[in-house]
Design a protein around this nucleic acid. Structure first.
Length: 575
DNA sequence: TACCCCAGCGCG
DNA sequence: AAAGCGCGCTGGGGTA
């Protein structure tokens, strides 16, 4: 059964559909304040909730203590189906842009009326990312998506999937994407436990005690003093790349940027303290006291997770840089008393995904244990380090350096896997679209890309035009090469997390945050916060969910997806 | 003052 | 080891 929710001037309109999409009862409208109780009652029948945007509906339900098992997030699913090569001929994909299509930045509409609509839509989008997602309460009935009918959209999506040759995969992708949206709301509700006192200690050890606003802490100041002395630049502003570059050149160094890996090549007494300064200044700017003041509330870090925020299907976050927490401060992530973290990491996820995608039995075999050791054992390369750099080269499209040099050896040892990424690269170079295992397609290159390619073959094309076109074409090829791997890995991770979410729910009783629950997700890694006594069971469920995800996506293809699990009280103690 | 872009660096 | 993929955030520095 499906239950479609829609905003209505009078409250919330509820439409129940059977599994074929046919209405099973007259639709009705209830008052907004009755929604949580209504959802809780209907949830016992395990429906799939259908709504325009999980972040507009679910946070309030969670706040009222109502958790749902599954949903369809029409906004996220629409994006997938609109772009997927598997549904390219569908009405949904070929229709004019509508309220379910986000306004594209580079498509400025000519007509004022249209412009107004798109701007209204855009402003809604930005509100969503910065806010709590709690839109349903007040003035949301005016947004374009509320003027669109979710029942009609849902039926259009079902039709597009049903007519596709890849309907099984697409259905899995849509379910996983929607489950991800539920997880995102739940993780925001729970928050990542953050020990402010410990964070303070870490900062004090590394930087010195918290300074007055606008000043530098003692250790940072002392390091800077050394830099200024050694460069004989007492007025140096080390945070200004221009200023720093001038000072370095005055000291006789030949350099054209202040990037740390460029600095590392230089020999000068000031380099060591300068690199130290950069490291510490970065910590202070990105995750220092200001960050704690802004992002930690009541011992929890609650970033805004953005499922589908990356073209490849990876998540993004907005606010707090949640996906870039530096190792230096991970010690401040500490479990509650009586609770533990289970930190789990999918080992060598992307190359394993590539083995599955390509159906490369040899590479799957090499991945029976440590994949890189397996590659060494196959004789392709001599060391684990070489295996790793060669694999990265294959997946990212390295052309030079060790990656570019070693990659051809992989092509000999694992021809199927390498042919897969090479084919994706060639498709991208031609401006074609590529598609992940479950059916997410890459965006086509933009208009200016095509212009540049076209111009390079005109009669008055210069050598420079052609060079530019080739370089741009290769660049897009590297993107599509990586897209199929990164995108399919993201699908694996979504399936993993969706399965884990339900397994965790079964381990406990009561509200979500009193059971083992997800508190963090980082592409190929999750953190579960769990009562101490359940930690071992959680670790087992994490591994079982990983095995499920592999079978769901790759079927009988025997690719292993081992996960490392650590049961810890601080994130810093994992791996 | 507000806004935009860039350089640089954190994460996978 | 900084060549090759995907992001977000900060401070500097410019413009309106």
């Amino acid at each position: 059964m499906y239950v479609v929710l829609a905003s209505d001037p009078a409250g919330v309109r509820i439409t129940q559909l059977d599994d074929s999409g046919a209405p099973v009862a007259a639709r009705r409208t209830i008052a907004r304040e009755h929604l949580p109780a209504e959802v809780a009652a209907l949830e016992r029948e395990r429906p799939r909730w259908v709504w325009d945007d999980t972040s507009r509906w679910y946070p309030q339900l969670l706040a009222a203590g109502v958790r749902v098992e599954r949903c369809v997030d029409l906004r996220l699913c629409h994006v997938i189906l609109r772009n997927s090569a598997l549904t390219a001929g569908s009405e949904l994909a070929t229709a004019e842009r509508g309220p379910w299509d986000a306004a594209a930045v580079d498509e400025k509409p000519a007509l004022l009326g249209t412009l107004f609509d798109l701007e209204a839509f855009g402003s809604e989008g930005t509100e969503r990312t910065k806010g709590t997602g709690a839109h349903t309460g007040t003035n949301s009935t005016d947004s374009p998506r509320d003027r669109a009918d979710p029942v009609a959209e849902f039926l259009a999506q079902r039709a597009a999937v049903a007519a596709s040759a890849g309907s099984g995969r697409l259905n899995l992708l849509l379910a996983a994407e929607s489950a991800g949206a539920l997880v995102a709301s739940e993780m925001r509700l729970a928050g990542l436990p953050w020990n402010v006192a410990r964070h303070d200690e870490l900062l004090a050890e590394l930087l010195g005690a918290r300074p007055k606003p606008g000043e530098r802490p003692a250790i940072l100041e002392a390091v800077l003093q050394r830099v200024r002395d050694l460069l004989e630049a007492p007025e140096l502003n080390p945070d200004s790349p221009n200023d720093l570059l001038r000072a370095l050149r005055r000291a006789g160094l030949v350099i054209d940027s202040t990037r740390s890996w460029e600095l590392k090549k230089l020999t000068h007494p000031a380099i060591e303290p300068l690199l130290e300064y950069k490291k510490l200044a970065r910590l202070m700017a990105a995750n220092g006291w200001n960050w704690v003041d802004t992002w930690i509330e009541n011992g929890r870090f609650r970033p805004d997770y953005v499922p589908g925020g990356v073209v490849t299907g990876r998540w993004a976050t907005s606010g707090g840089g949640a996906l870039q927490l530096p190792r230096q401060v991970r010690g401040a992530v500490m479990s509650d008393p009586g609770w533990k973290f289970v930190v789990a990491d999918a080992a060598q996820l992307e190359p394993r995904v590539l083995a599955g995608l390509a159906g490369d039995a040899k590479m799957a075999e090499a991945g029976r244990g440590d994949l890189y050791e397996g590659i060494v054992a196959s004789g392709a390369v001599a060391t684990r380090a070489e295996a790793k750099v060669a694999m990265l080269g294959a997946m990212y499209g390295a052309t030079s350096g060790d990656g570019g040099r070693l990659m051809p050896r992989l092509a000999k040892a694992f021809p199927a896997a390498i042919a897969m990424v090479e084919a994706a690269a060639r498709a991208g170079e031609r401006g074609e679209v590529v598609t992940t295992r479950l059916g997410r397609s890459s965006p086509p290159p933009g208009e200016s890309w095509r212009d540049i390619q076209g111009e390079a073959y005109g009669t008055d094309a210069s050598a420079a035009d052609q060079k530019r076109a080739i370089s741009q074409s290769r660049g897009w090829g590297r993107f599509t090469r990586n897209f199929i791997v990164q995108g399919t890995a993201a699908e694996w991770a979504l399936c993993w997390m969706a399965g884990l979410r339900n397994r965790l729910w079964e381990l406990g009783t009561g509200p979500l945050t009193e059971r083992p629950h997800l508190v963090f997700f980082l592409h190929d890694e999750v953190i579960v916060h769990t009562p101490k006594a359940l930690a071992d069971q959680v670790a087992a469920e994490v591994r079982a969910a990983a095995a499920d995800a592999g079978r769901l996506i790759f079927g009988s293809m025997p690719v292993d997806f081992p996960v490392t699990t650590a049961i810890v009280e601080s994130y810093a103690d994992a791996k």
